[in-house]
């Protein structure tokens, strides 16, 4: 058993490690892009513009109601079709293969954005109105209010919700294995195909995911404590 898991030619340890690294890359890239989507969507919801509000709410409803796996397929095949159609306009008639990594990141970050927009919206609304009024009273323009007053505090209110979304984002990266990207679960799948030790390898994969989520939980708890360092408690 240990030989199977060793690093090097005979073992699968290095393959699993590479898969785990790709899983983490997927997760972090989706987190970055997803935060941008989430903040933008929350901004649309709070803008007071009814068209933007409708669009943002429609987006959130769609993301909350459509399976993540389906979103992934829609993005993966949809972007393939879109690029192909676009290229055929310029007279190029070849097969296009979309990069699985970026299709996966786009799908996961849309999911993260849809859910986190609600977290951010709640966090912005949790900031006391008096602070915004005070900032206006000293003559801050809206962009400066956003940067100096709102953004630093939003994190504190949003962190618990974002932490949960991060944990489900990590678990969701496993879905990307179905579009043949060699992340942790697909590496495991390949290893099982050759070694015929399914329980061992899927068990190990589960333990690696568990390690990632456990470390994440610890970091999130630290971050939450840090974000509340200046808050007075009863």
């Amino acid at each position: 058993m240990w030989e199977l898991l060793s690093f090097g030619d005979k073992g699968w340890g290095d393959d699993l490690a590479l898969g785990a690294i790709l899983t983490l890359q997927l997760a972090f890239a989706s987190l970055g892009l997803g935060l941008v989507f989430g903040l933008a969507t929350a901004g649309m919801k709070l803008s007071g513009n009814r068209v933007l509000l409708g669009l943002a709410n429609g987006f959130t409803t769609a993301i909350r109601g459509i399976p993540d796996l389906l979103t992934l397929f829609l993005i993966y095949f949809g972007s393939q079709f879109a690029i192909q159609t676009l290229l055929s306009l310029f007279g190029y008639e070849g097969q296009v293969e979309v990069n699985g990594f970026w299709a996966g990141v786009l799908a996961l970050s849309l999911v993260f954005g849809g859910y986190s927009s609600e977290v951010f919206r709640g966090a912005f609304l949790a900031i006391p109105k008096g602070q915004i009024e005070a900032a206006k009273a000293v003559g801050m323009p809206p962009a400066l209010i956003f940067r100096r007053v709102l953004l630093p505090q939003v994190w504190r209110y949003a962190l618990p919700g974002l932490g949960n979304l991060w944990l489900s984002l990590i678990k969701d990266t496993s879905l990307i294995s179905v579009i043949a990207l060699d992340e942790l679960l697909r590496k495991t799948f390949i290893a099982v195909g050759i070694t015929k030790e399914p329980f061992l390898f899927y068990g190990i994969a589960c333990l690696i995911y568990l390690a990632i989520t456990t470390v994440s939980t610890g970091v999130i708890m630290r971050l939450e404590a840090w974000s509340e360092r200046g808050v007075r408690r009863a």
């Binding site: 944990l167 990590i170 678990k171 969701d172 990266t173 496993s174 879905l175 294995s177 679960l185 495991t188 799948f189 099982v192 399914p198 329980f199 899927y202 068990g203 994969a205 589960c206 995911y209 568990l210 989520t213 456990t214």
Partner: peptide, 13 residues
């Protein structure tokens, strides 16, 4: 703490 897909693989395969 683990993905549902990994759990299904663990049980089925």
């Amino acid at each position: 703490g683990t993905p549902l897909l990994a759990q299904i693989y663990l049980i089925y395969y």
